[in-house]
Amino acid sequence: MSRLSYLETLLNGVGVEWKPIGTEIKTVTAPSKLKSQSYRLTGRLPIIDQGLEFIAGYTDEDVTPINNGEYIIFGDHSEHIKYVDFPFVQGADGIKILRAISANTKYIYYAFLTFYTKELSYKRHWSTAQQTLIPIPCPNDPEKSLAIQSEIVRVLDEFTSLTAELTAELTARRKQYNYYRDQLLSFDEGEVEWISLNNLCESISAGGDVPENSVKGQLEPDSKYPYPIYANATDEKGLYGYTDSYKINSDAVTISARGAKVGFHTIRDAKFTHIIRLIVLVADKNLVSTRYLNYVLDMTSIGGTEGGIPQITVPMIKKITVPIPFYGDVKRSLKEQKRIVSMLDKFDTLTTSITEGLPREIELRQKQYEYYRDLLFSFPKPEPVTN
C-alpha cells in the first residue's frame, strides 16, 4: 500500500477541528541572544534569526544555546517561518521560538506555512499570526491524530528532501565551476603581471542620460530603433530599451555601478548605449581580450563605497588590477588568454546547461510539493458564523 493510500485510509471518516495555532504551541525564551555584529561565517553554534537565510551565521562565543529539539521559528517582522531541529543561538530580536504542546511540531510547521497569510508590512505580526486556524485531525483520539499528522509530515518531507538535494547539487556545480575557473586563472610566479584596468582598456566610461529618441521596455530591435540601451540592472539582462544610435562601437564589459548589484558585470556586443549608473570597459584588444577580461573580473573584488547605497565610480574601476599572463609578450599573452577563454567557455556551457536545468527541476518539485501539501491539508473547514 502506498503512503498516500495508507493516508487516505487513515483519513477516512475522521473528524477535524480547526484551532488557532496559538493554542497548539508554547513560546520558548532563548537563554541568550547575539547581535548581528557577532555573526561569523563559521563556528561551533549556528545562529537563527528572522532573516531570509535559514542559518544567519555562526558563533564560537561562550553562550548558552537553545537545547536540542524541534522548534518553529516565526519572524515577527519578516514573517519568515522556519523549522529547526538542532541546538542554536537566537540572533538579534524579532523572532518567536515555538514548540508544539501535544501535536507533531513539524505538522504544525507545515500547517502554519499552508494557512498563514502574510500581511507584508513592517510591524509585529505574531498577535495576528497566532490566530491562524490550522486543522487538527481526530482531536478526540490523540493517538490516531498523531499517526495522521506523522504520515502527512512523512509525505511532505519526501518532496522537500528532493528539492533540498537538487538545491545542494546546484550549489555544488557552481562551486565546481568557480574552483575550475580560479585554477585556470592562477599562474606561477613570473608568468603574470597585475595590470590596472586603466592600462588595459581603450576607454572606461560611465553612462549618461537616456537618449531622446528611444523606447523604454522594447525587448527586440526594429528598423526604427535597432540599438539596445543597457542600464544598471540584472533583470531582463539589464536591457532598458532601444534607440536609433549608439555610443559604444565595440564589444565591451559593463559593470553595474550602484545599488545591491554593484559590481555585477557581463559582456555586451558592439553597438549599444549605456545609461546612468552603468560603467563600460572597452578592452585594448592588443593587450587583453574582452572575454578574458570578463572572466578575470569574476575572481576580482569589485566592492562599492561603504555606508549608504553602495556604488563604484570610474576612478575606482581604473585602479583595479587583474592578472595578465606573459605581459610584455603580446603574441604569447593573447594566445594564453585565448586558451583559457576556450576552456572556460566549454566548462561554462556545460555548467550553464546544468544550472539552467536544475532550477527548472527545483521549481517543478516545489510546485509538486505545494500541490500535495494543499491536498493533504484539504480538510473541511468550519462554516462561517452568521448573525
Rank of each mutant, 00 (worst) to 15 (best):
L297P: 13
A283E: 07
I309Q: 00
R268C: 07
I267E: 13
V262A: 09
A270V: 10
N294H: 14
Q311R: 13
V280R: 03
G303R: 00
M299K: 04
K319V: 02
T266Y: 11
P310F: 12
G307S: 12
M299W: 15
L297G: 02
G308Y: 12
T321D: 12
R277V: 13
A260N: 09
G304N: 01
V282K: 09
G307T: 11
F272T: 07
A283V: 06
L281R: 00
R291M: 06
H265F: 07
V314Q: 02
D298L: 15
T273Y: 12
T321L: 12
I320R: 02
S333V: 00
V282H: 01
H274A: 15
T273L: 08
T305G: 15
I324H: 01
T300H: 15
I279S: 05
I275Q: 02
F264A: 15
V322S: 00
D329F: 04
V296W: 01
N286Y: 06
D329C: 01
F264S: 15
L287M: 06
I324D: 09
G259T: 14
R291D: 14
I275A: 09
S289L: 03
P310T: 11
P315V: 07
I279G: 00
Y327C: 08
P310G: 11
P323V: 14
I320P: 07
R268T: 03
K318G: 14
K285T: 05
M316G: 09
A283F: 08
I317P: 01
V262N: 04
P315L: 03
I275L: 05
L287S: 14
I275P: 05
G328D: 13
L281P: 00
D269V: 04
V262P: 00
V282Q: 04
R332H: 13
T290F: 07
V280E: 12
S301R: 11
R268L: 06
K319L: 08
Y295M: 03
V330S: 12
V314A: 03
L278F: 00
T305D: 08
D284C: 01
G304S: 03
F326W: 08
R268E: 11
D298Q: 07
I309V: 12
K285R: 05
R332D: 03
T273D: 08
L287R: 07
P310D: 02
G328M: 04
R332N: 11
I317L: 09
T266P: 08
N286E: 11
V314G: 04
K318S: 15
I279N: 08
Q311C: 08
T313D: 08
R268I: 12
I302N: 10
M299F: 12
Y327G: 05
K261E: 14
I267H: 13
F264W: 11
A283K: 01
N294A: 15
G263N: 12
Y327F: 11
G328V: 04
P325H: 03
F264H: 10
L297R: 12
L278I: 03
L287G: 01
K318V: 05
L297H: 10
H265Q: 05
V296N: 03
G328A: 05
R268N: 08
L297M: 04
I302S: 10
L281E: 05
D298G: 02
K331L: 02
T290L: 01
A270Y: 06
I309S: 02
N286Q: 10
L297K: 06
V280M: 00
A260Q: 13
I317S: 10
A283M: 07
M316Q: 15
K319T: 11
M299Y: 09
Q311Y: 15
S333Y: 03
L293V: 02
V314K: 13
M299G: 15
I279K: 02
A260L: 14
